[in-house]
Design a protein around this nucleic acid. Structure first.
Lengths: 351, 351
DNA sequence: TTTAGCACTAAAACCATTTGAGTGCTAAGT
DNA sequence: ACTTAGCACTCAAATGGTTTTAGTGCTAAA
């Protein structure tokens, strides 16, 4: 069993190490601890902590650094969130100034704000609405056989895509197709729409169109884009600051992962962030995560809720030696602020 | 005056240095040169080249590396473009496989192809059409006071933007505004449109709308997006490979410049790449360029022409020690291929 | 249980020496 | 008038030994 003083020692080792990045020795601790004991006493406590596997030495005569187990223990038992400063609140407010046309713009902006605030890397994910409905579908002919397909969902998101019609398709056919979509699919949830798109709709279209395949492709495409989760990343380049000069390889892998905008990115983020959880804020240490992607890094994830409009997620990637209390406090304030902004947006919308 | 053999020596020094990155000494050269002379003779030649400022030593007893002046001389007089390999041609063909809906998609894809091919960083710019015309403008109401504005230009580019109408604007007003736009502005060049948007149009709109300001803003916004030049960057992350581990600062500046998608990026690229030139391919050495942005790097720019559809530009950023003959050959082949693809696209369009 | 004292450890910094790749120069050879 | 062998010389880089420094663990006394 650990004594109270030993816990203090552990806490201070982590605090000091996250600040300076240097292993911390018994003499230095002596000055920093609230209780005043000699360095020899602290050494004894440190030996106990080392026996528990909470701290370790970098070499036989060095100061101590926290082990993964030590961080874990600290995060689970010892850390206390720090209050956000007025400066930070002001920065958040200012970041959210300006007008937004889409929810996604707010979510994207929040990744930027968060990364600016922390100098780490932020990932945000919009509120996930399970019962999102299709509220409208348009095809706008633009001449030269080009049409723009526009799909609107019940959360106000708009997805559009340009498309070139095969020359044999007549405008009357297209009109009928749109009518079918609007009669049959509008008002249903996106899941139902996707299902019907497989089953009934092709048959219906066949009655009125000679070759509905291209049209189905197009619609399916836009639908997929509207339904899929979009991650926004802010401060990718901050990685370069806190990933030591070493490990260029990891840096490249991470940047590449954030750079490409393909499905693989979404997949990677999904497994990385994990599903929505019910605790407000969760800290995962890189070495605890499945593969070596985040070695030496930590991942903080936080949920936010926009009432019936769903629940979303924000995440922060930073070095394992980060000032956790500060970051946890910040993230907690930020999730509430973001939730408020989004609620406001929806209200303004519904009114 | 330089002798023939001295030119050979210079050429080989550059070849060898661009391959290995190591200063090259007289003994090594002895084995590589087509003429067989002793190392002492080569040393004499090297001394002459050094007197001319074409090569220099990294320290008093080291091998030689090309100086900026040496590279310049080599590029102006000695370099001979290498032929592209069948492999490379195949890679280009494959990269251009698949279907494109917009010119910009082709241009963006070409940046990716070029960077994959070279492992450097590619920047591409679409054909600049001075007499681009406005061929259509639509406003699609989507419910909830949202409208999507769509603008089509004569090169087939489509620009769209979501917009929220102030509640006091009626749908009949909007319809009238669209009619005015289509009557007055469609068919004019974008420049003329922008001009009229300042002069006549506001007055016209005032007759039919109570508050045309928001509408004018919207239209101006989309117009600006359609008119502005878009740069596409491929292989940003390759910078990390060829910018030595040193100079992390420069790396960050460059990545940041390529990352942000704001107007400042366009500005930076514009001054960096310079105006369209008439020589097919131009090589600028980093140290020759205005400030220190590209220290140790080279910038290759090439023009391509799509007949009456305008002229565009592709650029390649790589280390100053790059295999110029290979890269110049490659870039030359690529510009022709890209021109062909774009011509095909336009033809298919016009037909 | 705490503390002073001391022997001990390993990294890091310092310094001198050696090695190696390359040079310039001179004097002889063609 | 070139070319070349030979040699003294230079500097960066590697090698190796010493010192310094920041820490440790352990023991014995308070």
């Amino acid at each position: 069993m650990l004594t109270k003083r030993q816990l203090l020692v552990l806490k201070q080792i982590i605090r000091s190490y996250t600040e300076t990045g240097q292993p911390v020795g018994s003499k230095a601790l002596m000055a920093q601890l609230p209780v005043h004991v000699s360095s020899a006493t602290i050494r004894n406590d440190m030996a106990a902590l080392e026996d528990e596997g909470l701290i370790r030495k970098t070499h036989s005569s060095s100061g101590r650094v926290p082990s993964t187990k030590g961080y874990r223990f600290y995060l689970d038992n010892l850390v206390e969130p720090a209050a956000v400063t007025p400066n930070e609140i002001a920065a958040i407010q200012q970041g959210f100034g300006g007008h937004f046309y889409k929810i996604d713009e707010i979510v994207a902006q929040s990744a930027r704000i968060l990364s600016n605030l922390t100098n780490y890397t932020a990932i945000t994910l919009g509120p996930e609405v399970t019962n999102l409905k299709l509220t409208g579908f348009r095809l706008v002919p633009l001449g030269n056989h080009q049409v723009m397909a526009i799909l609107v969902t019940s959360n106000g998101n708009v997805e559009s895509q340009l498309f070139t019609l095969p020359p044999e398709v007549g405008s009357d056919e297209v009109e009928k197709a749109i009518r079918i979509i609007n009669d049959e699919l509008v008002g249903l949830s996106l899941g139902e729409v996707a299902q019907k798109l497989q089953s009934e709709v092709p048959g219906l279209l066949f009655k009125y169109m000679t070759s509905p395949d291209g049209f189905l492709d197009l619609f399916g495409n836009v639908l997929r884009k509207a339904a899929e989760e979009r991650f926004y990343v802010g401060g990718r380049l901050n990685l370069m600051d806190y990933l030591g000069d070493s490990d260029v390889d990891q840096l490249k892998r991470l940047l590449a992962m954030m750079d490409n905008d393909q499905g693989s990115q979404r997949q990677a983020f999904n497994t990385l962030l994990g599903p929505l959880h019910d605790s407000h804020i969760k800290v995962k240490l890189g070495s605890e995560l499945t593969p070596d992607v985040l070695e030496n890094l930590s991942l903080l994830t936080a949920n936010y809720s926009v009432g019936e409009h769903g629940t979303g997620m924000i995440a922060l990637i930073g070095p394992t030696q980060m000032p956790y209390s500060k970051m946890i406090g910040l993230l907690d304030a930020f999730r509430e602020e973001l939730a408020k902004r989004l609620t406001d947006y929806y209200n303004h919308f519904d009114q």
